[in-house]
Amino acid sequence: MIGSTKINVIVSQIKVLNDLVTCFEFKRTNGGLLPTFSGGAHTIVEMQDGSVLRLNPYSIMSDPFDQARYTISVRRDDQGRGGSLFMHTKVKVGDEMVISYPVNLFSLDLRARKHLFIAGGIGITPFLAQIKQLERSNGYWELHYSTRRPSLGTFVDELLKKYPHKVSPYYDECDQRIELTSLLSGQPLGTHIYICGPKGMIDWVRQEATDFGWPDEAIHFEEFLAPLPGKPFQAKLEISDKVINVGELQSLLEAVELAGVEAPYLCRGGACGQCETSVIEYDGKFIHRDHWLTDDEKTSGLKIMPCVSRFEGKKLVLDR
């Protein structure tokens, strides 16, 4: 299976939410209905930036039952490869774009008696859709949302107004921290915890929950990595008999696709495992950045996740 089915959309609204975050609304180009989805799903947005095609995943934050529109939020990353800058500076209302069908790798566990959401920064977006979904079915949830300062806590006011007893905001610059110990120890049996935010936060909450004896099945998290820029390198694709050059701002997966070679993917963020590729031969070092391969696999030199990982060296031959 190669990626997922595409949808042609137009940008129907752009809203600057704060210094870092801008919100984009998409509608179907032909005016038809978009597919329903489940809270936590993402869509892959295709960005044609000059001759470069980037495909970045963004959580859908709009109501899963609203088939008229999807909304996403994009956080500007000045050090990134340019995907978020492209969205912030080049995309205009009325532009035609291509997005993928929704894919959910961060689904609610519908068996949970209670859903406890822990969000950091832009990690709030999947929870916005999940909250809307749970509100429809009278679900039991609670959100703890941490951001750097009030001016960046974009969705706080709206959430507090609607759900004053279910939402707790925290601001780093005001020295406010989630009191994890009391939070985790006070939860009813059957609670599931969901974490989305920076890696440090995910690791911290997972560790604390595990130490408290929470079962693994009740701890859910999602961290999509953006591919990082790096030194250009060359790779040979053995099966398709092609040599590709991976540019500084390009991911290995994007370079494979640009060469016309089909490669499977779902998340493009190092999490889902779909794009796992075998290495036939190499002379150099891998820069593994994914969450998929085990440490042993990473040191074995036999596998690479081309969506986020890179290579530096003389020779790389891939089974693709």
Binding site: M1, S4, T5, P35, F37, Y101, P102, V103, P264, L266, C272, G273, Q274
Partner: peptide
């Protein structure tokens, strides 16, 4: 199982 887990909407 790996195949089935990756079946998505529309495919």
């Amino acid at each position: 199982l790996k195949f089935l887990l990756s079946i998505q909407q529309g495919t």
